[in-house]
């Protein structure tokens, strides 16, 4: 059989691999082999496939291949790292200046570390536009400003900047309490955004975290607390 010497660039696949490549159970692949519906080879009782054969076959039958089948897990979200990591990427800024929403946001946007491709002016406009729609002040003196559309330039890396304001400002929150801290959330994807938002909101329910925020002056203290809270959270698949 031609399979004994591996043809360059023509990888051998097992039944299992072909199953995940096509997104079907192994039992189906086996049946297709027996029925002669899929190009397979046999070597002393074990079936194998050539990647090129399968690609050609799938193409001629308009079957979609799951490209990233090789162990990466295609369906899981790019959520490898934690809230803590996102917050570390975003950094903690103290004494952020500004008298109104527009000023603090401009200041925050200028502080947040971003890849050079991101247009900061555009980002500010997007943030303000979002505030016009509905305030991101969630009550209790906290606001989570974020743009309406995800920032593709972030390349799967969520960024959360913590900005402690030097004076409380009216953010139009639901409870009317003036805001003393901003969590500027910039996300690469809507679903990632929701996931982090949910995690963050769970942190903010922790009273000790809020009191720490109010008197905090060292980023490390904050990160330590976040790590502590995050560990206690249920693991969401």
């Amino acid at each position: 059989m031609r399979g004994d010497s591996v043809v360059l660039g023509n990888k051998k696949l097992t039944i299992k691999e072909v199953g995940s490549l096509l997104g079907i159970p192994e039992a189906t692949v086996r049946r297709w082999i027996v029925q002669g519906k899929i190009p397979a080879w046999e070597d002393s009782g074990r079936y194998f496939f050539f990647k090129k054969d399968i690609e050609k076959w799938a193409n001629s039958h308009n079957i979609f291949l799951h490209r990233d089948f090789e162990g990466k897990g295609s369906k899981t979200l790019p959520d490898r790292d934690s809230l803590l990591a996102a917050m570390k990427r975003g950094g903690v800024f103290f004494n952020v200046q500004g008298d109104n929403v527009q000023d603090v946001l401009r200041e925050a946007v200028s502080l947040v570390p971003l890849p050079p491709e991101v247009d900061r002016d555009l980002l500010l406009r997007m943030l303000l536009q979002r505030e016009e729609l509905a305030s991101t002040g969630i009550g209790g003196g906290i606001a989570i400003p974020h743009p309406r559309y995800p920032l593709k330039e972030l390349k799967r890396k969520e960024v959360i900047s913590t900005c402690l304001l030097n004076k409380e400002i009216d953010f139009g929150s639901i409870d009317g309490i003036p805001v003393f801290v901003l969590f500027l959330m910039l996300s690469p994807e809507i679903r990632v955004h929701l996931r982090y938002l949910s995690k963050l909101s769970l942190c903010l329910r922790d009273k000790s975290f809020i009191s720490l925020l109010k008197k905090c002056n060292k980023a490390e203290d904050l990160f330590k607390k976040v790590e502590e809270i995050e560990k206690a959270l249920p693991v969401v698949p």
Partner: peptide, 13 residues
């Protein structure tokens, strides 16, 4: 989903 897939691969090329 499976039905459709069986139909597809039945097609003669």
């Amino acid at each position: 989903d499976y039905y459709r897939r069986e139909l597809i691969i039945q097609e003669e090329i």
